[in-house]
Design a protein around this nucleic acid. Sequence first.
DNA 1: ACCTGAACACCGTTCAAGT
DNA 2: ACCTGAACACCGTTCAAGT
Lengths: 188, 188
Amino acid sequence: MTTTERPLRADAQRNLERIIASARSLFAEQGAQAQMEDIAAHAGVGIGTLYRRFPTKESLMTALVRERFQEFAVIAEEVERTTDPADALPTVMRRHAEAVEHDAAFQLAMMNLESFHWQGIEEDKKVLRATIARIIARGKKAGTVRANLRVDDYGILMCSTTAAMYFITDKSGWRRQQEIILAGLRPE
Amino acid sequence: MTTTERPLRADAQRNLERIIASARSLFAEQGAQAQMEDIAAHAGVGIGTLYRRFPTKESLMTALVRERFQEFAVIAEEVERTTDPADALPTVMRRHAEAVEHDAAFQLAMMNLESFHWQGIEEDKKVLRATIARIIARGKKAGTVRANLRVDDYGILMCSTTAAMYFITDKSGWRRQQEIILAGLRPE
DNA sequence: ACCTGAACACCGTTCAAGT
DNA sequence: ACCTGAACACCGTTCAAGT
């Protein structure tokens, strides 16, 4: 999994991007039962090409999650650099949530991944996880984060916010949700 | 849906119970991709019998959720009757969670229902929802529940706890999770 | 009324042929 | 290297026949 792949042929690369974009839009529209055939067609490629890149439907969903995770890592590092340690944790959580606020496909994928843990996305998690761990530690030191919070809690807490985005009809109902969680994160 | 059904024939009733028990155990073991055929076989009935009671796989999962919801209603009423209004909300949430702590099938079903809302289980929700609404209102009056909490938040908050049960490997990791949520529920 | 399971349909996945 | 789509396999669902 430490795959340092060499670049794809130009057309293949374009196809890959189209596939991902199509997957994102069809999953968002139709939910998890959007069909592989339809995604391929929407991307303008044969079904075989889709399977060449993503050997299973689940691997395609995972790819959607993975892309966002990489974005999450960038966001987390930026927040760590630029935000007061006392506010950093709530800030990342909000920024991460906002990053996927309109990505129904991601929200869906998070809930449908057969065994997600936030462990699932092995490599991508590492950097992100390390950054989050530091942010949490500093928050504790600053006295704004409850002592018994663990890094592993982060994933599920975020997961529950994305679920809220997907389920709550009210446009930005997830914010009230997250506000509750953020309040709970503070020391007693 | 205001179906007041007359009782099933004795053998049919027994089959129904077996089907539900089998579904619970197979979903718990194998996740959502447990097969209808296998569930029928495990229950000792033909596949046709399974479909006679549950016209789709999703309706079978919904049934598992529905049973628990009825139990939830009973629990909520009991808590309302016997617990200090100031503590009632955290108490129901804990008791509801404990009720499904070992029911992996329920946890899974909650996450897989195509459009859950907690709205999904129409009739069963009503009583439960009304009780929860009163508990929340009294909690606010007692000053132990934040003012901007809505009844509809309850479902998603609980949902995130069941997700935690399913995902967190740590035996009772969901308790720490819920503790955070409960803390967040209190006024600022 | 209820049960059964063979048959059907749909959709995820494979693979031989093509550039 | 990569693309294609017909063919295959699996599994959810139906329905004609049986008690």
